[in-house]
Each structure stands twice: as structure tokens, then as C-alpha cells.
Amino acid sequence: MDLTDRPRRLRTDGVRPLVAETDLSASDLVAPVFVDATTDERVPIETMPGHERVPVDEAVDRVAEVRETGVEAVILFGVPESKDASGSRAYADDGVVQRAIRRISAETDATVIGDVCLCEYTDHGHCGVIEETAESDPTLTVKNDETLDLLARTAVSQADAGADVVAPSAMTDGQVGAIREALDEAGHEDVAILSYAAKYESAFYGPFRDAADGAPAFGDRRHYQMDPANRREAFREARLDAEQGADVLMVKPGLPYLDIVGDLRREFDRPIAAYNVSGEYAMLHAAAEKGWLDLEATALESLTALKRAGADLIITYFAEDVADHL
């Protein structure tokens, strides 16, 4: 047996880190922060151990906690004080996210990303304008073109408040172009767009919908989010977003869609993001609580896999815990 080629020579403790092909650092990570206009104190999120909804008055402190771990960026999600059919609190100047962005931008040096969607703000829980009869006919879906203006208004309101990046997540056709045009007209040419380019209609979102109080009141989102069976469609979605001015293209969820992350990395010259979603976070915690997995090791391996597949940045609920060990 010829043993002149021995890969194990490169796996010793001293050599292994020198030849590591993938480097994961705290600066690659984005930490989600939930800001809640309905509470005066922090509220633990039962389905996402270690995470809380925080009142606006504590948003700065929460971001400071994130920054202490070395994570430099946060993405904000809001729980409004009231909801209506058009999700008007999403684009209100005094909305929960807008108020939080103003304080965070003024008092910290964090990079602030605003999630641009309406599902957390509509009384029906869908990501845009719906037909008046939709509740009695759940096959009806969000009205695409009527939703674009509301998404653009939301993005501009967040940019006005001081957001560095806006992240449209509604999977509405044309949303990136509408937002880019509105931002430029409002004088926000330097605000970047991180597009949820390939967002699948996934079963892994359950804990997030609990955290953000954004579950649909009826029906589901299969008519506007992507079919998990589709791979080629992701190219089409990402290409359209890139042509409309997206600065970063994101795949959501992350781990079940590593092939899509890799595909987009090879195809596009823009940064690629991956969202390590709430269900991925919750299932590792549940297994660790049973003693079936080592939480720290599996979290680190999961994020390294996303980076290895081609993600330049990763939104993850593990951001702070993992950053502490990097």
C-alpha cells in the first residue's frame, strides 16, 4: 500500500488551523433583535431559549450586549402596539422599529439592518395587501403590485430613522426595484438593500412567528414564498433582484438549502447571505436539552457549513454565543 500521500499530516493541532479552508469570525454574523412596543420589560421567547423581546427603551442596551461579543451588526424585527389591514405601523415614523433604529444609530456604532415586511404589522398576518374576501377564501393571495408602495414606504421610513441596510423579505415581485427607486428619490442612495432573494415557504419558521407575533391568521404563504422543491427558480429570483439593484442576495432558510447558497455564490458577484433560521436554532437547543447533542459544537459546525457553502454573512440566533468562542 502506497502511503506517500497522507492527508492526516495536515490534521495535527499545530497545522490544522494553518490549512483550514473556511474561516468563521464574529464579523460574519448578524444578530436578530426583537423590539416590542407592547411591553415595558423584557419578555423571554419560549420557543427560542436565550432570546427576548425587548421594549424600545432597552433596545440600545440589547444592542450593546450584542456588540460586546464582537458581533457588529443587528437586524431589527418589531412587534407593534396595534395592527390593521395595511400594516400601517410598519411604515409609521413613530413605529416601533423606527424608534429603535433612531436610538441605536445615535448611541451605538452597530450596523443596523431593518427587516422590511408587513406580516408582523397586519391584522391578517400576511406580507401585504390582501383581497377583502381572502379570509373566507384562503386560496387568495397577497396582491403583489398594491403591496409594493407599502414596502417602499417602510424601507424609506427605516432609512430616514438611520438604518444602514434595509432587507425586504416579503417575496413580492419587483420589491427591490420599488425600494431602490424610493430610497434614491428620498436621498438615501447610500442605504444598501439586502434582499431575501430566495426565501422558501419553510416549516422551519415556526419559532420566529411566535417571537414576532407574525403567523398568518388564515391560509399560508405558499403563493408568494418559494416551493422547497425548486432549485432553478432560485436563480431566477436572485437574478431579478440583482438586476433591480440588490446589494446582497440572501437564502432563507440556511442549512436545508446549502445547495442554493452554493449555487448563488458561483453564479453572482454580489455578497451572499444565509439566514440560519429560528427552527434550526430551536431544534439544536431541543436536542441539546435532551443530552443528544453538544450545543456549542453543533452550532459552530452549522455556521461553518453555511460559510463553507458560500455565505459571506450569516443572520443567526447563535450569533452571540458563537462569537464568544471565536
Results as ranks from 00 to 15, higher is better:
residue 20 A to Q: 15
residue 322 V to K: 03
residue 173 D to H: 14
residue 139 T to E: 11
residue 233 E to R: 15
residue 23 D to P: 08
residue 142 V to R: 06
residue 251 V to E: 00
residue 129 V to Y: 04
residue 235 F to D: 15
residue 225 Q to E: 09
residue 44 P to H: 13
residue 83 K to T: 10
residue 77 F to V: 02
residue 178 A to S: 15
residue 307 K to L: 00
residue 20 A to T: 13
residue 225 Q to M: 08
residue 202 S to Y: 14
residue 248 V to A: 05
residue 285 H to F: 13
residue 87 G to T: 01
residue 132 E to N: 12
residue 53 R to V: 11
residue 256 P to E: 12
residue 314 I to E: 12
residue 6 R to L: 10
residue 168 P to T: 02
residue 41 E to G: 15
residue 82 S to G: 05
residue 259 D to V: 09
residue 200 Y to W: 08
residue 162 G to Q: 01
residue 34 F to D: 09
residue 131 E to F: 12
residue 105 S to T: 13
residue 320 E to V: 03
residue 90 A to F: 00
residue 72 E to C: 01
residue 166 V to C: 07
residue 92 A to R: 08
residue 15 V to L: 14
residue 95 G to V: 02
residue 131 E to S: 15
residue 220 D to S: 09
residue 316 T to P: 02
residue 215 A to P: 00
residue 27 S to H: 14
residue 244 Q to I: 09
residue 200 Y to E: 00
residue 208 F to S: 00
residue 241 D to N: 07
residue 135 E to Q: 15
residue 20 A to S: 14
residue 43 V to H: 05
residue 144 N to C: 02
residue 91 Y to V: 02
residue 283 M to Q: 09
residue 14 G to C: 12
residue 125 G to H: 10
residue 290 K to P: 06
residue 144 N to A: 01
residue 131 E to R: 15
residue 125 G to E: 04
residue 241 D to H: 05
residue 69 T to D: 04
residue 313 L to S: 13
residue 176 V to I: 15
residue 176 V to K: 04
residue 201 E to N: 14
residue 48 M to V: 07
residue 94 D to K: 12
residue 17 P to Q: 06
residue 147 T to C: 02
residue 244 Q to H: 13
residue 156 V to A: 05
residue 27 S to L: 05
residue 155 A to F: 07
residue 193 I to C: 08
residue 52 E to D: 14
residue 249 L to T: 05
residue 115 D to N: 10
residue 274 A to R: 00
residue 181 E to P: 04
residue 274 A to I: 09
residue 162 G to S: 03
residue 40 D to C: 07
residue 320 E to Y: 03
residue 12 T to H: 06
